[in-house]
Design a binder for these strands. Structure first.
Lengths: 224, 224
DNA sequence: GCGTTAACGGTGTTATAACACGAGAGCTCT
DNA sequence: AGAGCTCTCGTGTTATAACACCGTTAACGC
């Protein structure tokens, strides 16, 4: 269609950026717990880099709001209170359902197959009560869609939001077991996609988000 | 009312953070132009700090998406293409109108007076065609409201969005002159506030956002 | 005149050491 | 035993120098 070459924004490839990408992946899958301190020198040692790249990576995540300073010299992964959870839920709903809606027109039969394949792995993860696989698959499902909305700004905002709640989500899943999770809304989404029902697709994604966030919110009470 | 002490999240007070706050203020008022390169050492010299704090401040802004790498060794303030502008417009509309709606219940007679005072300064800025004063006043008007929504997450997202479009906004205002700008929607907002019409208030803010964004979009064509 | 090449200057990055600060352990003195 | 002190260790920050990279410019040779 559009033969216009989209100028890919420059991606730095420094040690710090590699490390940051690695840390993001770890945070997505919940390798770090809410409240857990993360020290520059420990990260540096663990990833076999010098202090500077480690510091850069962590400071970037702090700037994004993914990590926070608890006091002047301790970086921690944030815990979510009710207020933050409510805000993230609202922002996710608004931004992600729009991404889903926009992505629709860029998704055909091939993409539908891929989504169903991811969903199949999710079924298996739930059946085997494999929290890691579930969290990872859920992430794959959503961002496979969002990536196709061609919306760099919204995509970035959404990624920041995910990184903020992912650790808590992972914790809750591990507590209650992945087997308690339904993901009927994924099926509703793929069904809507197949029927070319953009609004239905958007609605399904929105429902899925609400379910996920409420899952955390419900669990948060006994936790706190 | 609520006697609960809200634990203020820790605010670092390092040189780098001071500098970053200073840079944010400069970006808000459009002291830097879209496309303009910003070098670490130049900033360091200008603000009489060493390279490290300057680097930290700039890297934080890059992490936030407020500045970007044009290539492996040049940081620039980003230019907005149509796609990014559309995204920012959408996100602003959704997030800021919600902030406005929530802020309503925390705004009484005193806040109304303050808003009207800011608006009066805006009138004067427009009359005198003072771009600086206009941009600054507009920022003051909106964030005086948003601050009262008590929503750290959304507030942060919105600030990031403002920093991304502010340089372009400033440029367009300077091109066409602030006197071309109407801000009738501010009056509609204060009127709705006075009438205790939360939905009207939200609508007015939303209209104001659309007007502002469309102002940039319209000007962007001849610019590009 | 034109093309090639070498050197300079400027960029962000990385490494290392010194710094300031605070929490905690262990010791001393009462 | 308990209170108070000191010392140590670990934290993020800052400074400085060395590094790799690249665009520009100037000089050189054809």
């Amino acid at each position: 269609m559009a033969a216009v070459e989209k100028p890919v924004p420059f991606q730095p490839n420094t040690m710090a950026d590699d490390l940051q990408r690695s840390l993001r992946a770890s945070l997505f899958t919940g390798a770090y717990e809410p409240g857990q301190p993360i020290s520059i020198r420990q990260i540096a040692e663990k990833y076999k880099v010098s202090i500077m790249p480690a510091r850069d990576a962590l400071r970037s995540l702090v700037a994004e709001g993914v990590l926070i300073f608890r006091d002047s010299r301790t970086i921690v992964v944030p815990e979510l209170d009710g207020e933050r959870l409510r805000d993230i839920r609202f922002a996710r709903d608004n931004l992600e359902s729009e991404l889903a809606y926009r992505a629709c027109q860029n998704m055909g039969a091939e993409e539908l197959l891929t989504l169903r394949a991811i969903d199949k792995q999710l079924d298996q993860a739930i059946a085997e009560n494999d929290t890691d696989a579930y969290v990872q698959g859920n992430h794959a499902f959503h961002f496979y869609i969002y990536r196709r909305a061609d919306s760099a700004v919204l995509h970035r905002l959404v990624e920041t939001l995910w990184l903020q709640y992912a650790p808590s989500m992972r914790k809750v899943c591990a507590m209650y077991g992945a087997s308690d999770i339904k993901h009927d809304f994924h099926r509703a989404a793929t069904a809507a996609l197949e029927a070319n029902d953009r609004n239905g697709f958007r609605k399904a994604i929105s429902d899925d988000i609400h379910q996920g966030m409420d899952f955390i919110a419900a669990a948060r009470i006994p936790v706190a």
